[in-house]
Design a binder for these strands. Sequence first.
RNA 1: CGGGCAGUAGCGCAGGGGCUAGCGCAUUUGGUUCGGGACCAAAGGGUCGAUGGUUCAAAUCCAUUCUGCCCGACCA
Length: 576
Amino acid sequence: MRMSNLFSKTLREAPNGADCKGYEYLLRAGYIDQLSAGIFSLLPLGFRSIQKISTIVREEMNALGAQEILMPVVNPGDLWKETGRFYSIDKEMSRFKDRKDSDMVLAMTHEECCTDLGRNVIDSYKRLPLLVYQLQTKWRDDPRPRAGLIRVREFTMKDSYSFDKDQAGLEKVYKAHYDAYFRIFKRCGLPVIAVGADSGMMGGKVSHEYMYLSPIGEDTIIYCPECGYTANRQVATFQKDYFAEEPKAKELVSTPDAKTIDDLCKCLNIPATKTAKALFMVGTFINAENGEETTKLIVGIVRGDMDIEENKLQNAARANSMRPAHPEEILEAGMVPGFGSPIGCKEGTIVIIDDSVAKSNNLVAGANKEGYHYINTNYGVDYNGTVADIASAASGYKCPTCGKPITASKGVEVGNIFQLGTRYSEAMNCYYQDENGQRKPVIMGSYGIGIGRLLACLCEEYNDESGLKLPISVAPYQVNFISLIKDAEVSDKIYKQLEDAGIEVLYDDRKETAGVKFADADLIGVPVRITLGNRTFKEGKCEVKVRGSEEEAVLVDLENLVPEIKALIAKLEQRA
RNA sequence: CGGGCAGUAGCGCAGGGGCUAGCGCAUUUGGUUCGGGACCAAAGGGUCGAUGGUUCAAAUCCAUUCUGCCCGACCA
């Protein structure tokens, strides 16, 4: 590709709003262009990188025996009504009516569509297992896109769907994906860890997320350096200490102005472990049959030395969504913010008690009376509710498997795998007949990788003060050939030789000064840079340098250029 | 959906009731340079986000609205 003809240009300054390095360079180097919030065009350079990543993904998926298909972005609403997700998913899914006034949706994932395909094809156990995948556009109307390609509304996802006759089959294909994903990220050059995760709106039980650890990430990952336990904080567990003792009768005490646990501990001169704190949320519950919404107040209780993990609370309460409660709503349910507890709360309130509270005794809790708390409150005696783990894991807590201290760090989710089980096949009547003629729901799994997000993470991982330095496996070109000599015929000829040898060359044939060409080369970050300058050209040589490498440029005889470059490319490819 | 900031040339910004709306970079032309974002000279490029209002006069003041960004809520 001649740079004089490249459909993009480099920017000297970062466009306003480029908040992280990778994003800034993607814009400045001309890989991508923003059209609207969370909506981007891929320019030739960005598109080439995306194609490289896509090829790697396809190769690994094909190696699993997965068959590539393509499902539509526009789905009939009726399909999504079958699983209830037409109602249970909020504004994140965009809907419209077609000319016949039928509900239509923009698919934000393809379980429904793929299950429909499955039920058309699968009749007998003899047809199973099956595995299909696609690389397709997804639209998710995220309320807050940010950080360039990290969190967008329109994006390309590799999603695969497995159909099995039994759990053993699902586990096999799940494990195959688990390993294949590591190979994909490895080949792209992205360091990731797999963590146990919440299955969220997907349903199902087992799921893992692939996390790129980075401060720009929005997820918090808990891990144990000792035994390797990892989990998203949304589901991470830890060992809790309990303080069981002989229950005593509760007693009202005056605690003026003690609205926080800190205040309360100072006021009564007790440790936080002797207190129970409440979090008030309003949950929305959607009837999957007809889409009817009801709201209920949810009270989460955790011991004062911990925090509540809202995701765990929402799951325990079986709410579709949740928001903080307004003070009036809390008062309405018979509780007092700042001095709140489920003691004497109104019927119909959902009370979720963390096991740290249920298994400890004589805790101080709010009296639901301004300025007062009870001492010696006990679960089962003074109040009731559902006991669950709703505490948030934090740095320094004890690992659930080995007991050593865990740590927390930020990460970006670049892939996830779900064991869906029969959530979709049952709802959508995707059944098969087994060897005994029994009708059984197909066991499914779904597996996703965000392709654009993967590129964004790579750009975050591979950059320096002058620009990008992507691994050769995903860089848009292998070689950036910079000509500084007057004689265009000579450099054109070298360019042709390289191209003819099957090397992917970005040829800087522009009438620009050396400085501009070098700066742009650094910014775009093509791995191998060949410079043909007057000084070395007189000696029949050119200069070869690897982007981002500490090593000095080496001089290569022009006659040997093609084999030398091929060898260098092979070496760089090997390194990955 | 709450809180904050911003929309003026391709990009980054200045101007803040009054005359022809500026600057840097980018672009075009001519010349000089020619291995790390060159120099000189000339030139082109604007519905000042949109709508409505106040005024003799609006990029500037007021109202409404749209869009983008940041923080939160939310989210694979």
